[in-house]
Amino acid sequence: MDYTLSELMVATAAREIHDGDVVFVGMRLPLIAYVVAKNTHAPQAVGVFENGVLRSTPARELLFTMSDGPNITGALSCLSMLECMALLQQGRVSLGFLGAAEVDRHGNLNSTEVQDSSGKMVRLPGSGGACDIAALSKRFVALLDHQKFRLPEKVHYITSPGYGPWRDSGRLKEGGPAAVITTKAVLRFSPQGEAYLHSYHPGTTVEDVVANTGWPLEVSPEARETKPPTKQELRVIRNYDPKGFWTK
Protein backbone atom coordinates (compact mmCIF):
# COMPACT_ATOMS: atom_id res chain seq x y z
CA MET A 1 0.00 0.00 0.00
CA ASP A 2 1.35 3.41 -0.87
CA TYR A 3 -0.89 5.20 1.64
CA THR A 4 -1.50 4.95 5.37
CA LEU A 5 -4.60 3.70 7.14
CA SER A 6 -5.28 7.20 8.44
CA GLU A 7 -5.07 8.57 4.88
CA LEU A 8 -7.59 5.96 3.77
CA MET A 9 -9.91 6.94 6.62
CA VAL A 10 -9.57 10.65 5.84
CA ALA A 11 -10.37 10.08 2.16
CA THR A 12 -13.33 7.87 3.09
CA ALA A 13 -14.61 10.51 5.52
CA ALA A 14 -14.13 13.23 2.88
CA ARG A 15 -16.39 11.32 0.47
CA GLU A 16 -19.20 11.50 3.02
CA ILE A 17 -19.24 15.27 2.49
CA HIS A 18 -21.53 16.26 -0.35
CA ASP A 19 -21.09 19.50 -2.24
CA GLY A 20 -23.10 22.22 -0.52
CA ASP A 21 -23.20 20.38 2.81
CA VAL A 22 -23.07 22.38 6.01
CA VAL A 23 -20.58 20.25 7.95
CA PHE A 24 -19.96 20.17 11.69
CA VAL A 25 -16.30 19.36 11.33
CA GLY A 26 -15.10 18.17 14.74
CA MET A 27 -11.52 17.31 15.61
CA ARG A 28 -8.59 15.24 14.35
CA LEU A 29 -9.03 13.31 11.08
CA PRO A 30 -12.30 15.03 10.07
CA LEU A 31 -10.46 18.38 10.16
CA ILE A 32 -8.45 17.03 7.23
CA ALA A 33 -11.42 15.30 5.59
CA TYR A 34 -13.07 18.72 5.29
CA VAL A 35 -9.95 20.12 3.60
CA VAL A 36 -9.86 17.18 1.17
CA ALA A 37 -13.56 17.51 0.30
CA LYS A 38 -13.24 21.28 -0.22
CA ASN A 39 -10.29 20.78 -2.55
CA THR A 40 -11.84 17.95 -4.54
CA HIS A 41 -15.54 17.21 -4.94
CA ALA A 42 -17.27 19.59 -2.48
CA PRO A 43 -15.99 23.13 -3.06
CA GLN A 44 -19.27 24.63 -1.84
CA ALA A 45 -19.29 22.87 1.55
CA VAL A 46 -19.37 25.14 4.61
CA GLY A 47 -17.57 24.17 7.81
CA VAL A 48 -19.10 24.83 11.23
CA PHE A 49 -16.81 24.60 14.26
CA GLU A 50 -18.38 24.52 17.70
CA ASN A 51 -15.95 27.08 19.12
CA GLY A 52 -17.91 29.61 17.04
CA VAL A 53 -16.13 29.57 13.68
CA LEU A 54 -17.76 29.26 10.26
CA ARG A 55 -15.47 28.68 7.29
CA SER A 56 -16.15 28.55 3.58
CA THR A 57 -12.48 27.97 2.76
CA PRO A 58 -10.21 25.46 4.47
CA ALA A 59 -7.60 26.82 6.86
CA ARG A 60 -4.29 27.42 5.11
CA GLU A 61 -2.20 25.43 7.55
CA LEU A 62 -2.51 22.19 9.47
CA LEU A 63 -4.78 22.50 12.48
CA PHE A 64 -4.10 20.74 15.75
CA THR A 65 -7.31 22.17 17.22
CA MET A 66 -10.25 24.04 15.72
CA SER A 67 -9.27 27.21 17.62
CA ASP A 68 -5.74 27.44 16.17
CA GLY A 69 -4.83 30.78 14.61
CA PRO A 70 -5.05 29.61 10.98
CA ASN A 71 -8.68 28.54 11.49
CA ILE A 72 -9.61 32.08 12.59
CA THR A 73 -7.69 34.00 9.91
CA GLY A 74 -9.94 34.26 6.85
CA ALA A 75 -12.96 32.71 8.58
CA LEU A 76 -16.42 33.37 7.17
CA SER A 77 -17.66 34.36 10.62
CA CYS A 78 -16.59 34.21 14.24
CA LEU A 79 -19.55 33.65 16.53
CA SER A 80 -20.33 32.16 19.91
CA MET A 81 -20.67 28.44 20.56
CA LEU A 82 -24.40 28.87 21.11
CA GLU A 83 -24.87 30.37 17.65
CA CYS A 84 -23.17 27.35 16.05
CA MET A 85 -25.17 24.93 18.17
CA ALA A 86 -28.31 26.84 17.17
CA LEU A 87 -27.58 26.03 13.50
CA LEU A 88 -27.36 22.40 14.53
CA GLN A 89 -30.59 22.43 16.53
CA GLN A 90 -32.47 24.23 13.75
CA GLY A 91 -31.61 21.40 11.39
CA ARG A 92 -29.29 23.45 9.18
CA VAL A 93 -26.30 21.11 9.62
CA SER A 94 -26.42 18.33 7.05
CA LEU A 95 -23.46 16.31 8.29
CA GLY A 96 -21.45 16.02 11.50
CA PHE A 97 -18.30 14.07 12.37
CA LEU A 98 -17.34 12.66 15.71
CA GLY A 99 -15.03 10.16 17.32
CA ALA A 100 -15.81 7.59 20.01
CA ALA A 101 -14.23 4.89 22.16
CA GLU A 102 -17.13 2.48 21.62
CA VAL A 103 -19.88 2.07 19.03
CA ASP A 104 -22.68 -0.47 19.38
CA ARG A 105 -24.95 -2.42 17.04
CA HIS A 106 -27.36 0.51 16.69
CA GLY A 107 -24.75 3.21 16.31
CA ASN A 108 -24.88 4.47 19.90
CA LEU A 109 -21.57 5.95 20.96
CA ASN A 110 -19.76 5.99 24.27
CA SER A 111 -16.93 8.42 24.92
CA THR A 112 -17.56 8.94 28.65
CA GLU A 113 -16.35 5.84 30.47
CA VAL A 114 -15.34 2.27 29.63
CA GLN A 115 -14.13 -0.76 31.53
CA ASP A 116 -10.62 -2.10 31.06
CA SER A 117 -9.90 -5.84 30.76
CA SER A 118 -9.81 -6.20 34.55
CA GLY A 119 -13.23 -4.58 34.89
CA LYS A 120 -11.90 -1.31 36.31
CA MET A 121 -13.66 1.84 35.14
CA VAL A 122 -11.59 4.05 32.85
CA ARG A 123 -12.75 7.65 32.63
CA LEU A 124 -12.63 9.20 29.16
CA PRO A 125 -12.81 12.92 28.35
CA GLY A 126 -16.59 12.94 27.75
CA SER A 127 -19.00 14.26 25.14
CA GLY A 128 -17.67 17.64 24.16
CA GLY A 129 -19.97 18.44 21.26
CA ALA A 130 -20.33 14.79 20.19
CA CYS A 131 -23.74 14.22 21.79
CA ASP A 132 -25.06 17.42 20.18
CA ILE A 133 -23.77 16.43 16.75
CA ALA A 134 -25.20 12.90 17.05
CA ALA A 135 -28.57 14.10 18.29
CA LEU A 136 -29.11 17.05 15.98
CA SER A 137 -27.25 16.78 12.65
CA LYS A 138 -29.15 15.34 9.69
CA ARG A 139 -26.50 12.61 9.28
CA PHE A 140 -23.47 11.83 11.33
CA VAL A 141 -20.34 9.82 10.71
CA ALA A 142 -18.30 8.32 13.54
CA LEU A 143 -14.64 7.33 13.39
CA LEU A 144 -13.41 4.40 15.47
CA ASP A 145 -10.35 2.28 16.17
CA HIS A 146 -11.72 -1.16 15.21
CA GLN A 147 -11.20 -3.58 18.07
CA LYS A 148 -13.71 -6.12 19.34
CA PHE A 149 -14.07 -4.53 22.77
CA ARG A 150 -14.79 -1.18 21.12
CA LEU A 151 -17.76 -2.65 19.24
CA PRO A 152 -20.00 -4.13 21.94
CA GLU A 153 -23.55 -5.27 21.24
CA LYS A 154 -24.77 -2.47 23.51
CA VAL A 155 -22.77 0.38 25.07
CA HIS A 156 -23.43 0.69 28.81
CA TYR A 157 -23.40 4.49 28.62
CA ILE A 158 -24.78 6.42 25.67
CA THR A 159 -22.76 9.61 25.30
CA SER A 160 -24.07 10.22 21.78
CA PRO A 161 -27.34 8.71 20.59
CA GLY A 162 -27.50 6.47 17.52
CA TYR A 163 -30.69 4.60 16.63
CA GLY A 164 -33.31 3.81 19.28
CA PRO A 165 -36.90 4.70 20.21
CA TRP A 166 -35.87 8.38 20.35
CA ARG A 167 -35.62 8.33 16.53
CA ASP A 168 -39.28 7.26 16.12
CA SER A 169 -40.75 10.74 16.40
CA GLY A 170 -39.98 14.38 17.13
CA ARG A 171 -36.87 16.35 16.30
CA LEU A 172 -34.42 13.42 16.52
CA LYS A 173 -36.33 11.51 13.83
CA GLU A 174 -34.60 13.75 11.29
CA GLY A 175 -31.12 12.39 12.09
CA GLY A 176 -29.00 9.40 12.98
CA PRO A 177 -25.70 7.74 12.07
CA ALA A 178 -24.98 7.37 8.36
CA ALA A 179 -21.69 5.52 8.69
CA VAL A 180 -19.02 4.34 11.08
CA ILE A 181 -15.57 4.52 9.53
CA THR A 182 -13.28 2.20 11.48
CA THR A 183 -9.66 1.20 11.04
CA LYS A 184 -10.91 -1.96 9.30
CA ALA A 185 -14.17 -1.17 7.57
CA VAL A 186 -17.11 1.09 6.83
CA LEU A 187 -20.38 0.18 8.55
CA ARG A 188 -23.71 1.58 7.46
CA PHE A 189 -27.21 1.20 8.89
CA SER A 190 -30.37 -0.60 7.79
CA PRO A 191 -33.74 1.19 7.80
CA GLN A 192 -34.30 -0.55 11.15
CA GLY A 193 -31.17 1.14 12.48
CA GLU A 194 -28.87 -1.87 12.65
CA ALA A 195 -25.25 -1.67 11.53
CA TYR A 196 -24.06 -3.79 8.61
CA LEU A 197 -20.75 -4.18 6.83
CA HIS A 198 -20.68 -1.93 3.80
CA SER A 199 -16.99 -2.18 2.88
CA TYR A 200 -13.77 -3.61 4.28
CA HIS A 201 -10.46 -1.83 3.93
CA PRO A 202 -7.71 -3.18 1.65
CA GLY A 203 -5.64 -5.64 3.68
CA THR A 204 -8.58 -6.88 5.76
CA THR A 205 -11.31 -9.41 4.98
CA VAL A 206 -14.99 -9.75 5.73
CA GLU A 207 -14.14 -12.56 8.18
CA ASP A 208 -11.61 -10.40 10.01
CA VAL A 209 -14.11 -7.57 10.43
CA VAL A 210 -16.89 -9.89 11.61
CA ALA A 211 -14.54 -11.67 14.04
CA ASN A 212 -13.54 -8.34 15.53
CA THR A 213 -17.06 -7.08 16.08
CA GLY A 214 -18.91 -7.72 19.34
CA TRP A 215 -22.18 -8.91 17.80
CA PRO A 216 -23.06 -11.05 14.75
CA LEU A 217 -22.47 -8.32 12.17
CA GLU A 218 -24.71 -8.37 9.12
CA VAL A 219 -22.74 -8.33 5.87
CA SER A 220 -24.25 -6.59 2.88
CA PRO A 221 -24.47 -8.85 -0.20
CA GLU A 222 -22.81 -5.95 -2.01
CA ALA A 223 -19.98 -5.62 0.51
CA ARG A 224 -16.77 -4.72 -1.31
CA GLU A 225 -13.31 -3.41 -0.65
CA THR A 226 -13.15 0.23 0.51
CA LYS A 227 -12.02 2.42 -2.37
CA PRO A 228 -8.43 3.52 -1.72
CA PRO A 229 -7.56 7.21 -1.69
CA THR A 230 -7.05 8.73 -5.12
CA LYS A 231 -3.83 10.47 -6.12
CA GLN A 232 -5.61 13.79 -5.85
CA GLU A 233 -6.90 13.04 -2.35
CA LEU A 234 -3.45 11.92 -1.23
CA ARG A 235 -1.89 15.05 -2.69
CA VAL A 236 -4.25 17.26 -0.67
CA ILE A 237 -3.73 15.25 2.52
CA ARG A 238 0.09 15.28 2.24
CA ASN A 239 0.23 18.88 1.25
CA TYR A 240 -1.85 19.73 4.31
CA ASP A 241 -0.23 17.35 6.82
CA PRO A 242 3.30 17.04 5.41
CA LYS A 243 4.77 15.60 8.60
CA GLY A 244 1.89 13.16 8.99
CA PHE A 245 0.96 14.30 12.50
CA TRP A 246 -2.63 13.12 12.05
CA THR A 247 -2.23 10.86 9.03
CA LYS A 248 1.01 8.93 9.62
Partner: peptide, 10 residues
Amino acid sequence: PTYTAGGSSL
Protein backbone atom coordinates in the same frame (compact mmCIF):
# COMPACT_ATOMS: atom_id res chain seq x y z
CA PRO B 1 -35.36 23.89 26.62
CA THR B 2 -33.43 21.89 24.06
CA TYR B 3 -33.61 18.83 21.82
CA THR B 4 -30.00 17.85 22.36
CA ALA B 5 -29.01 14.88 24.51
CA GLY B 6 -32.29 13.08 23.68
CA GLY B 7 -31.63 9.34 23.83
CA SER B 8 -28.36 9.82 25.73
CA SER B 9 -27.45 8.67 29.26
CA LEU B 10 -26.63 12.21 30.35
